[in-house]
């Protein structure tokens, strides 16, 4: 009895205390700056509607989704969906694929962009430099659909450039769609291709920020261009490189759905080798598959991603807080 009384006594004051301490200033701020809050309103509503409210669907990871019963009405099944996702072997396969592809893509595409930026920085021809920078940025500009058209154009068995080239050289034509292992490299190449110009912009900006006195001093000391790159340029942009790598590591469990979907397409033979979490999720959604398991896969990905990115951000903060995400 006493306990209850104490609780009763506590709650209201606690609540009003919280109100007075937290809600009230926000409320008065909203009154004072009504127009500013009104200007925020459309964006807040959009994000609420398309990002926060759909989060409620996460509960489906623990339910057996039935269309007729809806999200709320579908029965709970505990961790069944997760069990299914991992015991079928799918979970491990798509996770490994996602990590391996992202790691390989990260290394190749960043390395290529870095080399491009360094070379562009040292090259003499101003005009040539500008042209190459524009041209290398072009792939970013086109949609993945067009990249899909390129892939078709180059690799298709009957009319593809590759096979006609092979035949002209006296080889037998090959059907790459029956060779899953080749697609690891094809995806890597197209990924580097699409992002080379875009990524190099970041490095070029970092290189531009290097104090030109360093280079002048090196010139006077008789350093050659390789030494300058090795001793000045690369060490100076090391923080940028490290942060970019770390930020990409933070996204290591997110597959680039558009890229995988457009390059691999609906070639079932390639799924084992090229399925990442995102394409798996899409396919089981599109085929009307097990929504519960699909949601389990998504939740597993989102939670791990969140943990990784928070960890990575803490690391970035230590290295260079300017580059920290939050």
């Amino acid at each position: 009895m006493k306990k209850q009384n104490a609780q009763n006594a506590l709650t209201p004051t606690g609540a009003t205390g919280a109100l007075a301490g937290k809600k009230h200033p926000l409320w008065s701020e909203m009154k004072k700056n009504r127009s500013l809050f009104l200007m925020l309103l459309p964006a807040l509503l959009l994000v609420l509607l398309f990002k926060y409210i759909p989060l409620g669907g996460i509960v489906l990871a623990f339910k057996d989704y039935r269309y007729d019963l809806g999200i709320v009405g579908s029965p709970w099944v505990g961790l069944q969906n997760f069990k299914f996702f991992f015991l079928s072997g799918t979970g491990l396969r798509v996770t490994v694929n996602t990590i391996v592809y992202n790691a390989a893509n990260l290394i190749t595409s960043q390395l290529l962009s870095l080399v491009l930026a360094v070379v562009l920085n040292e090259i003499w021809g101003r005009r040539f430099k500008k042209i190459i920078q524009s041209v290398s940025f072009l792939p970013y500009f086109v949609s993945w659909i067009l990249v899909g058209a390129f892939v078709y154009n180059i690799f298709n068995v009957d009319n593809g450039v590759l096979n006609h080239f092979l035949v002209a050289l006296g080889h037998d034509p090959i059907n790459l769609y029956a060779m899953p292992s080749a697609w690891f490299f094809i995806i890597m190449i197209f990924n580097s291709w699409k992002w080379v110009g875009y990524n190099s912009v970041v490095y070029i900006a970092a290189i531009t920020g290097i104090d030109s006195e360093c280079y002048e001093a090196a010139d006077i000391d008789g350093a050659n261009v390789w030494q300058k790159i090795w001793r000045i340029t690369l060490p100076s942009i090391k923080p940028t490189v490290i942060t970019i790598v770390l930020l990409n590591v933070g996204r290591i469990l997110r597959g680039d759905f558009q890229m995988f979907y457009q390059i691999v397409g609906r070639n079932g033979q390639l799924y084992d080798a090229t399925d990442v979490i995102d394409t798996f999720v899409f396919r089981s959604l599109a085929s009307g598959g097990d929504i519960g398991m699909t949601m389990a896969a998504t939740l597993y990905q989102s939670v791990l991603c969140f943990i990784i990115i928070v960890g990575v951000n803490a690391l970035v903060k230590k290295i260079d807080s300017d580059y920290a995400l939050f």
């Binding site: 669907g57 959604l285 929504i291 990115i309």
Partner: peptide, 21 residues
């Protein structure tokens, strides 16, 4: 409020949630 926006890039319900919604 910036973080309210930013959080959506850190954690989201993915394709399925949005699609069903």
């Amino acid at each position: 409020i910036s973080f309210f926006f930013y959080f959506t890039t850190l954690f989201n319900g993915g394709m399925v949630c949005t699609y069903i919604f």
